[in-house]
Design a protein around this nucleic acid. Structure first.
Lengths: 172, 172
DNA sequence: TTGATTGCAAAGCATTTGCATGCTA
DNA sequence: TAGCATGCAAATGCTTTGCAATCAA
């Protein structure tokens, strides 16, 4: 494969350790899937990742990608997010600052953001109810600037659903 | 049917108006589904609501419940929430103060809470990115007090997944 | 050698859709 | 009467599972 050997050393190590601790096995498929997953930006669905992996090694099946994404999530290397379309998306998680998502209902654009104040408030709310917070997800749905503009231009014409586009994320 | 006639007058009116404005039709099924939906507490899945409705009128089909829940959402009477198990849940929305959810990953208990500070922060974040916020959802996942206790008692025994129980909500 | 892992195909779910029939306006 | 609504059955789309073959340790 065409993958550089010394990228993502830490993540690979975390993965190896998780595999050993859990008594699982090291396989070429898992390596490849991890490697390609770590190179993704934004949020990949299992299907997205499957296609990427399949391009490099067409012997890897859908099922393995599904199973490996769960494994990566368990290992703390991936985070599962849902945007409300019924699918699961995954994003590399390790050593990444936690963030939340704002999604445009017009074009599907996803903006990632982080707010320390909101994080703190979530902690105190959890504490208030005696919960030990493990993680959380927050989604803000709205219309992005472009879509507001487009809506003003169409003005009144039933705009219907725009094709769902996922653009490169914007970090705050 | 055994439904009291003067409950939920406002909601019924909102529904009627929505139906008229959209050029749709008034049917016995829609009335019954709305009526029963408004009497639910917590969050019902389409399946849950179907069973409740079916008990009163066994001629009502699954499909109609699905379609009516979407209609109620459009009319602003229902809110769709997802807890991450792949299903959609709905809760009566009209005239209810907005709230978010905290979910116990041990027993599935759902606590509803509201934080004005978080609401405000969400507004400013949306504004910062030029979004016109329409709605949002926030889920906090963690272990509730009881499950923490149970975990401490089992202490080390692989606890596995507890049966998923949905308890009556706690309002803040 | 042992048993975890894989990929295929099939099964499971929740949800949606096609279509003939029924019913509202 | 026109055409929206209904309910059934079938289709869809994502995810999971059963299983025989494969492969890591």
């Amino acid at each position: 494969m065409t993958v550089k050997q010394n990228e993502f050393q830490t993540e690979k190590q975390v993965f190896s350790e998780h595999i050993q601790k859990a008594g699982l096995r090291h396989t070429a498929q898992r390596d490849l899937i991890l490697e390609i997953f770590l190179r993704t930006e934004d949020h990949v669905s299992s299907e997205d990742l499957y296609r990427l992996v399949h391009k490099e090694d067409s012997s890897v099946g859908h099922t393995t990608v599904y199973r490996t994404l769960k494994l990566l999530t368990d290992a703390g290397l991936a985070r599962e997010v849902r945007f409300g379309d019924g699918k699961s998306y995954y994003e590399p998680h390790y050593n990444l600052e936690h963030h939340d998502h704002m999604i445009c209902t017009g074009c599907g654009k996803v903006v990632e953001f982080f707010s320390a104040e909101i994080e703190n408030l979530q902690d105190s709310i959890a504490a208030e109810y005696g919960f030990k917070l493990t993680h959380h997800s927050m989604r803000i749905l709205g219309l992005c600037g472009d879509c507001q503009k487009r809506e003003r231009e169409l003005n009144g014409a039933a705009s219907g659903a725009q094709p769902r586009i996922r653009v490169k994320s914007v970090y705050s």
